[in-house]
């Protein structure tokens, strides 16, 4: 009665894993149990069982390879560096376009305030122009909503990547953001900095002066 023995052994192993890990079990742990079960059972099996267990074994190999491939994608880096950086940049775009839109509207309102000082025809023409400016400013609302939608999608991806990292029981790297070493001129092409990390002109001047 090899199968009964196998069931019992499997139950014991699963109980031990549950006690240790709860309901969240790493894929590597599952592969390890399958491999170990196959090793202990080989002598007791007939041809049909062997075929079945070879299938299970190839499934274990498949899981193992998938894990290696996912690890090679460095999901921790995707979550902690790329997605976090992308959402910060998008938030900065919304902030910058909102500030610029308000400045444009300030100027249009100042222009409008000059209307009483002009003759009627010029004042009317200017009102038409400021109306066009206000209409054009509606782009900020639409842009903001679109970007907010993209940020929400990125956060969803981030959550799924995090679940993936958890499913692997922390075996996949999950390091935080790291400053990359500057090796080539291209490494210096960082683009505009986020407001929180950007140096202002006074800081740049101080840095330049420090070389004197």
């Amino acid at each position: 009665m090899a199968a009964k023995g196998v069931d019992r052994d499997l139950e014991l192993r699963l109980d031990a894993i549950r006690r240790e890990h709860g309901d969240s079990v790493g894929v590597e742990k599952i592969a390890e149990v399958v491999r170990s079960m196959l090793d202990t059972m080989t002598g007791d099996l007939d041809g049909g069982d062997l075929k079945l267990f070879r299938e299970v074994e190839s499934l274990a190999d498949y899981i193992h390879n998938a894990k290696a491939e996912i690890a090679a994608l460095r999901p921790g880096e995707i979550k902690n560096e790329f997605i976090a950086s992308a959402t910060d940049e998008l938030d900065a775009i919304v902030g910058a376009t909102e500030a610029a839109t308000n400045e444009i509207m300030d100027s249009a309102e100042h222009l409008e305030a000059l209307a009483p000082m002009m003759d009627a025809e010029v004042a009317e023409r200017m009102t038409e122009i400021t109306t066009r400016i206000f209409e054009a400013c509606t782009f900020q609302d639409i842009t903001g909503q679109r970007i907010t939608k993209v940020v929400r999608m990125l956060k969803e991806i981030e959550q799924r990547v995090e679940n993936l990292v958890k499913a692997f029981g922390g075996e996949i790297e999950s390091e935080g953001r790291k400053d990359k070493a500057i090796e080539t001129d291209e490494d210096l092409l960082n683009g505009p900095q986020l407001p929180t990390s950007a140096a202002d002109q006074a800081e740049i001047d101080r840095l330049l002066a420090s070389f004197d």
């Binding site: 909102e98 839109t101 308000n102 509207m105 249009a108 309102e109 409008e112 009102t127 400021t130 109306t131 206000f134 209409e135 400013c137 509606t138 900020q140 609302d141 903001g144």
Partner: peptide, 17 residues
């Protein structure tokens, strides 16, 4: 009614005109 302050300002200006 709008949660974007900028849009409130735009509509207010258009209504004023």
């Amino acid at each position: 009614v709008d949660d974007y302050k900028t849009m409130l300002r735009i509509i207010r200006n258009l209504l004023k005109q």
